[in-house]
């Protein structure tokens, strides 16, 4: 009676891995002016997020842009560089959890196969991209141990497995839900997406195993870091879906 829409929302709330010329319509956020600005120009555009009326601003936007949670219907990001994480790693960024469960037996083959891989964001990301064989959207939002076993999934499964691999190496890592803007030949598309922030050195870096190898210019808009990695971790996916449309403006 009540659950069907929630179940459906969970299946939709996460994102897509295939940024190609054939975009998948369900995860494409509406772009109000897809061809007006280019992401790869000399001066990256200002990004305007149109929120669903009555909803709150996404948590990471509140934190990183220092805007009130009860934002207006629009959220303006003058410079996407402001969205880079600057916080210090916390103990849980390196610990196993229900969601990022590299302590499970099923994760062992991932650790085994990646033994010789250097502990850099690029190398770990490339490994996970190769490790997940079946690139599809059949999985809703699996924990790392299930991804390790099935070797299947979209961006969310790539992200959680990358986070697990990083943590198993002692590298702070966290899963981020958000929107990725992608510059195609003639237009920009906005897709629901998931990636990882890793800290191999002194700053957080984006690790995007799903889109690894894509030559297209991308801009990451973090909406929600998965902070509750317990059995209710899927709730984080719901709160990343308050954006109705995206607009680009010249700066």
């Amino acid at each position: 009676m009540i659950a069907p829409l929630l179940h459906a929302a969970l299946l939709l709330g996460t994102a897509d891995d295939a940024v190609t010329d054939t975009m998948r319509p369900l995860h494409a956020f509406e772009m109000l002016n897809p061809s007006a600005q280019r992401l790869d120009g000399p001066r990256p555009p200002r990004v305007v997020l149109v929120l669903i009326p009555g909803t709150r601003a996404p948590p990471e936007m509140v934190t990183r842009l220092n805007v009130p949670q009860t934002a207006a219907d629009l959220l303006v990001i003058d410079d996407v560089k402001l969205l880079h994480a600057r916080d210090l790693p916390l103990p849980w960024h390196q610990q196993p959890s229900f969601f990022v469960d590299h302590d499970e037996k099923a994760f062992a083959p991932v650790a085994q196969e990646s033994r010789a891989i250097p502990a850099t964001t690029a190398d770990l990301t490339a490994f996970i991209h190769r490790y997940i064989i079946h690139k599809n959207s059949e999985r809703g939002l699996d924990p790392a141990s299930v991804v390790a076993r099935r070797r299947e999934g979209d961006c969310t499964e790539h992200a959680v497995l990358l986070a697990a691999l990083a943590r198993s190496r002692g590298i702070p890592a966290r899963v981020v839900f958000g929107i990725v803007l992608v510059q195609r030949e003639k237009d920009v598309v906005a897709m629901g997406h998931a990636w990882v922030e890793l800290r191999t050195g002194t700053t957080w870096e984006v690790g995007d195993a799903a889109l690894h190898g894509s030559p297209l210019t991308k801009v990451y808009l973090p909406l929600n870091v998965v902070t509750d990695e317990g059995p209710a971790y899927k709730l984080a996916g719901l709160s990343a879906t308050n954006i109705k449309a995206v607009k680009l403006e010249p700066r």
């Binding site: 009676m1 009540i2 829409l5 939709l12 709730l235 719901l238 709160s239 308050n242």
Partner: peptide, 27 residues
């Protein structure tokens, strides 16, 4: 969880129809 579902219910409290906005999609 900050998601608002709009429902229309009958006299017994059973849902006749409902709607939820998720990103650019309407469920």
């Amino acid at each position: 969880q900050d998601k608002e579902m709009t429902m229309v219910v009958d006299g017994a409290g059973l849902v006749e129809r409902s709607e939820l906005l998720i990103g650019s999609a309407t469920l």
